[in-house]
Design a protein around this nucleic acid. Structure first.
Length: 793
RNA sequence: UGCCCUAUAGCUCAAUUGGCAGAGCGCCUGACUCUGGAUCAGGAGGUUCCAGGUUCGAAUCCUGGUAGGGCAACCA
């Protein structure tokens, strides 16, 4: 694989380790405050509450069995920028526990690409395979504690007895071997006394768990294969579910971030770490993986594309691999920016390629010099330009709005080429490029007029004859204006060069979404690579391979390093410019009819009967609650199906004469504050609870205050009176007293008052909030609302 | 069919944790321009999945649904 020839030079030129991981543009996501994604919120909270006291330590844990792609980049950027943000560290750990697929080649590729992205892990380079000894010892400890056993069933037997998603599994006949027996067997495994598949080590958890991963998962298997780092030292290898959490714990990782599909593994992660390590211990959090339009991301599928020759290799510029993107001309800064733009969340997503392209253009805009290159040449003869003359024109490399200096000379000759698409025989209105009789400016040169069109026998345009207006030389103060400017290159002094025009690899947004009997390769875009012979201006003749240019009016291009090494000059189109003209030409995609994206099934016309789902016993219970306490069917059904809540309710109802309010507060306020276990033995008494509800009912406390008191009651176990007394809480319902606050709020925000009167009625909530804040939540909201409405309407 | 996760603008995400539903990208219009780019100015676009409920007030809390995704390798 002779593809990776320039990583270091590229890094030197474009990677920016200094600002790596910090937003390079201010004000992206939203909100006046910088908005924090859920992982940041968790870490903030851990730091605030002291759950994490030392450094924040995260890790990026690739398996070295494939080339890293843009999906890995998302994880790399997330982890390394988190480490930077919190002043902690990010470990690079190779999760190399499967000897059959892993290779040093992939380790090298991974390290090279992470560095290229602009991140450095320093001394924190680790390998799960370095922990084999420790992991083995931990497995023995598990055995000693009766938490693991050697199972001698075959693979098929293990699979068959695991049960299904709806049925529990059955326990292995070997599940109750003695500790000594297990230890002997496991040591025998380690010593190489058995063949592949003869035994495995299983965690002893629960064959009936609703989570299949907890049904005695296999944690060690015999595999007499040579490991790329440990050679033949080990006949047994730990599995991911065992090695990963424990490697995290060994390294002192605080936050272990992974993708959504691992959320089912979290109970096992916790089980292992809790049994084998002391606090503080690592915690796993999951976020959504990246899906990108018009490409595939799975290593298996990328490998298939390479193997079947659908692409030129792992670093084919159409591939979503980092090596492919690098060779295409994408920059580390652009990829980092993209990864920041897509955010971190738990909802499955599919990201529009336009966002990636935006990030690339935005970065290249002030990094790539402008030159002219004609991709589809049409010959133009300047009839009033002397034959044999070559006029050197001064041409700035940068547009005015980019503050960079630099220019080159561009030769103008009698024969030039322009873009075929810049001429139209019969142009629509709004087309302001060349057509018979029309005028256009040659970029950096003169205005020309098309006097004659030469066509061949088939009517194909083969040549244009134009005349130059010598008063309009670029930079002169000619007053003549034309609408259009076109790029051009001297036909005699321009250089022929190969340009590769890349387009999306697949022609559907989600190639994985295939019909029966089809495969994702059926969606391959046959035009994803178009190679043309272009004419480029001579100033580029000596450029070295890490050169980016913007070919004016075309896009950004990058001199392919692989072809260069083979002695060829090939320009890869990194990304086109945004093209509003091309869009106008295509019929605009019809706007999706409203409501189509999520067809909401018609709901039954009448509300569902809350009693409908109850069994016979629950049903009669609910009826009883309704007749006895006058509860609504909803509340009655809720209590009928929940024993702990019902017991608490009856006790509280007995201590008061407002059962409906008791049920209401129990269901909507108390219950959400408690866990299932707390509900069994509530941290507050039914009598206290009833007293609180009474305080609300008689107007002493507003609902907001009552909620606050309730939280306090749960935390301290005190009665409501004690808390109310201590805090001096009392709802204020006096209109006169509240009028003052209301008037103050309104006069503090004249603009909002005006907006409200102008129709922005939602602002009532803002005013309410202000008043509640000023009164420390003690204002009677009904009264406040009435006062506000009175003043505003 | 069991368990878990998720649902806010076309896309990706916010919403100070119960108080004005916003941003970036994309799209449209206009201005400017020697890149139909960039830039600048403006605009459209919302049943916050649905139905009930609690609350003065719900995207946010409660109940019940719906849809999408994940989980039954001795892979990671």
């Amino acid at each position: 694989m002779a593809n990776f020839l320039f990583p270091d030079r590229l890094t030197a030129r474009f990677a920016a380790p200094d600002d790596a991981g910090t937003p390079s543009h201010s004000g992206h996501p939203s909100s006046p405050r910088e908005s924090r994604h859920f992982i940041q919120q968790i870490i903030d909270d851990d730091l605030k509450t002291g759950r994490v006291t030392g450094d924040v330590v995260v890790r990026f844990p690739p398996e070295p069995n494939g080339y890293p792609h843009i999906g890995h980049a998302k994880a790399i950027v997330l982890n390394f920028s988190l480490a930077k943000e919190y002043g902690g560290r990010c470990h690079l750990r190779f999760d190399d526990t499967n000897p059959e697929t892993e290779d040093m080649e992939y380790v090298r590729a991974m390290k090279r690409d992470i560095r290229w992205l602009g991140y450095e892990w320093g001394e924190n380079e680790f390998y799960a395979s370095d922990y084999f000894e420790q992991l083995y010892d931990l497995a023995e400890r598990l055995i000693e504690e009766g938490l693991a056993y050697v199972d001698s069933q075959t693979g098929e037997e293990i699979r068959a007895t695991r049960g299904t998603v709806t049925e529990a599994g059955t326990e292995s006949p070997y599940r109750n071997r003695t500790v000594q027996e297990n230890l002997d067997l496991f040591r025998g495994m380690r010593a190489g006394q058995f063949n592949d598949g003869e035994h495995v080590l299983r965690a002893r958890i629960d064959m009936a768990s609703p989570n299949m991963l907890m049904r005695d998962p296999v944690i060690y298997r015999i595999k007499k294969a040579s490991h790329y780092r440990r050679g033949d030292e080990w006949p047994i290898y730990p599995l991911y579910d065992f090695a990963h959490p424990l490697s995290d714990a060994i390294e002192g990782i605080t936050h272990s971030l992974c993708t959504l599909e691992f959320d089912v593994h979290r109970p096992l992660y916790d089980w292992l770490v809790e049994h084998l390590f002391e606090d503080p211990r690592p915690h796993q959090y999951e976020s959504a993986r990246l899906n990108l339009d018009y490409t595939v991301m799975s290593k298996r599928k990328l490998l298939q594309l390479v193997r079947e020759g659908r692409v030129a290799g792992w670093d084919d510029p159409r591939m979503p691999t980092l090596s492919g993107m690098r060779r295409r001309g994408y920059t580390p800064a652009a990829i980092r920016r993209f990864c920041e733009l897509i955010g971190v969340a738990k909802a499955d997503n599919r990201v529009d390629v336009a966002l990636l392209e935006y990030a690339v253009r935005d970065d290249l805009n002030d990094k790539a010099r402008r030159v002219m290159c004609v991709l589809d040449p049409l010959k133009v003869v300047l009839t009033n330009f002397p034959d044999g003359k070559s006029e050197m024109l001064h041409a700035g490399y940068w547009p005015h709005d980019i503050g960079h200096e630099g220019a080159r000379q561009v030769p103008l000759t009698r024969e030039i080429v322009i873009e075929r698409s810049d001429f139209m025989m019969d142009p629509p209105s709004r087309f302001h490029r060349l057509s018979p009789g029309a005028e256009v400016r040659l970029r950096h040169a003169y205005i020309i007029r098309c006097d004659d069109v030469i066509t061949d026998d088939e009517g194909q345009v083969t040549e244009l004859r134009c005349s130059v207006d010598y008063d309009t030389r670029s930079g002169s103060d000619s007053s003549k204006k034309v609408k259009g400017t076109v790029h051009w290159v001297s036909a005699s002094e321009g250089i022929e060069t190969t340009v590769r025009l890349y387009d999306r690899l697949f022609n559907v947004p989600n190639p994985d979404d295939v019909e029966e009997g089809q495969s994702f390769v059926d969606h391959l875009n046959p035009d994803s690579l178009r190679e043309v012979t272009a004419v480029i201006e001579p100033s580029t003749a000596d450029d070295e391979p890490e050169t980016w240019y913007q070919f004016e009016r075309q896009g950004y291009f990058y001199l392919d390093p692989v072809a260069f090494e083979e002695g060829k000059r090939v320009w890869n189109r990194t990304v086109t410019l945004r093209d509003s003209w091309g869009k106008q030409q295509e019929p605009a995609a019809p706007a999706k009819p409203k409501g189509q994206k999520q067809a909401v099934p018609a709901q039954p016309a009448e509300p569902l009967d809350p009693m409908a789902e109850l069994d016979e016993e629950e049903h009669s219970m609910a009826i009883e609650l309704q007749t006895l306490y006058a509860l609504s069917p909803e509340d009655a059904a809720f209590l009928a199906t929940r024993d702990d809540e019902r017991v608490f309710f009856k006790e509280a109802a007995a201590a008061s004469n407002t059962p409906v309010a008791i049920a209401n507060w129990l269901i909507h306020e108390l219950r959400p504050l408690l866990s299932q276990e707390q509900m069994e033995t509530p941290p507050t008494t039914a009598q206290h609870f009833a007293a609180l509800v009474a305080l609300h009912a008689d107007g002493t406390l507003s609902s907001r205050m009552a909620r606050e008191v309730l939280e306090e009651m749960i935390a301290s176990g005190e009665g409501p009176d004690t808390i109310v007394e201590r805090k001096g809480m009392r709802q204020v319902s006096d209109e006169e007293a509240l009028s003052g606050v209301v008037d103050e709020v309104l006069s503090n925000h004249p603009d909002r008052v005006e907006a409200y009167r102008g129709g922005k009625k939602g602002l009532i909530g803002f005013f309410m909030g202000q008043v509640m804040q000023k009164t420390d939540g003690s204002a009677n909201p009904q009264v406040v609302r009435a006062l506000l409405q009175e003043r505003l309407d």
